[in-house]
Design a protein around this nucleic acid. Sequence first.
RNA 1: AGCGGGGUAGCUCAGUUGGUUAGAGCACAGGAUUCAUAACCCUGAGGUCACGGGUUCAAAUCCCGUCCCCGCUACCA
Length: 557
Amino acid sequence: MTRHLVTSALPYANGPIHLGHVAGAYLPADLYVRGLRQMGEEVLFVCGADEHGVAITIGAEKAKQGYDEYVEHWRGDIKKTFDSLGIAFDTWSGTSVCPDHEETTQEFFRLLDDQGYLIRREIEQLYCTKDEMYLADRYVEGTCYNCGAENARGDECPDCGTWIETLRLKEPRCKLCGGPPERRTTSHWFLDLPALRDKKIAKWIEDHDWKSNVSAFIKGLLKDAPERAITRDMKWGVPVPEDRAEGISGKVLYVWFDAPIGYISFTKEWARKQGRPDDWKLWWQNDETHLTHFIGKDNIPFHCLVFPSMLWGTGQNYILPHAVPANEFYSMAGGKFSTSEGRTFDLEEYLKEIDPEVVRCYLTATLPETADAEFKKEDLVTFNNSSLASNLGNLGSRVLKFIAKNFDSQIPELAPEHEADLDKLLFECSASCEDPGKDLLAFRFRRSLEDVLALATAANVFMQRCEPWKTNKTDPVLAGSQLNTLCEWIALLARWLAPFAPGKAQELWQQLGAEGEVSQGGWPKVPSAENPQWRSGLGGRALGELGTLFPRIDAPE
RNA sequence: AGCGGGGUAGCUCAGUUGGUUAGAGCACAGGAUUCAUAACCCUGAGGUCACGGGUUCAAAUCCCGUCCCCGCUACCA
């Protein structure tokens, strides 16, 4: 049986997570995982913090904290937000604390070296003697050699738009201390991407079925895939293994080399904690496993080209990604989520104000699946009131309250003579409805939630046509059959809703008087003339405590 | 600058390999109803599918050009 290994991009432990991240890589993964599980599939959902790299060392120094203390803080902060949103990984770790990470990463280095895919080469770089570090492009400023602007960055001149070669910049200065850096020659190891591409990866990419927005992107990447430096001169990170360092010290592996390996080391850590340390191989080196990487589009090169190259290049039989459903960008009204530009907001505070499950649903309804999308607080309120409260919430409310009042809080029985007619009418009302599960598995999460809401609308239409408030006065048995049918349908809705709003679904499940976890209830097919055996025999069951599933939100101001 | 994505109803977006009067939800208007969270149901209005050319019996869909928005461009993550 197919196993599903699902990963979400490792969040960088350098600041809080924002809704752009959530919508890009985490919520879709969580929906997919919950859906698969409910369908009875075996799933492992892996994530953790990405904790190395220059940006973190600088952030920590600014915060006057130790590197490990700094990343621990953000690792915890980010996890807390995931918890609030109900994004539930099977394992959560961090690249600087996972006990398997250093060893696994160094093993990759050795294996790639053994296979001849690493190249050592000397390059010139700018070095700041005061900060004692080599400066990446973004940490250098200077005078543009093209237009003379004094505020050119190491990568681009904001005045003339020229693409800057850092070493040619006039009067370069360190962006951190303002001092002049000097040129130094340093050795680095490069990953031989061209060779990996030619031997395997280009063909693999060609043959693979990618999401359309990913496909166009990686074709361009393939054309020129340069050798890529995978080491850095700094202390914070996974050291180059001593036995391969050729006497050169002070090198760590580039954060982008070690981060994706985190998926594997976190799996090893998880497996050991399960008491079956070798199980990680089932997930990473077994052809029956489907590996799915959920990422934002900025991560496409790494997950579709670089990491697969690394996996294959080790010569071990690592599986390559089965799907990379990369999302486009999610932004706030008017621009991207950006802490520095003040266009974000305190997500933790917001989640205290707005039910996180409503936020999940709204995010799902607006996910940037095919194009960039926008988050608007006002739209969330409208969405909650019209789609969740009035449609789905109100459906449960009108049916269950009616039963509470008129049938003593007990789901009425279905009279056998009514079944055929009621089914016929119901299937008519739901004729255009699609199976939310089908869209979910195809990574069409927006549509999947739309399917669920359409299925709720179908029930509202059905009730409108049945008019049990009228039939109850003339033919209480018929009214009972009608309400029974509605309860059966709501029991399906609770299960379809479960991936999107697990808590709400559970609440609805309990209102129907059901026992146990709604997510254990399986994934029901959409009832139709072809699938007429859809009822589970709820007649006679006592309702649970009723409450308002999705309260309306008063518009702010 | 190069590469990629986008520009479709007031808003958020669907539109599969080109094929009848371009769709959905929300918002809006009218009607019906009263079980329900002023909810539900029915009906309606609405768009020269960014702009200009071209290919075709037929183009939102393919080709060329122009204009806007966004992302990436890899030793930032």
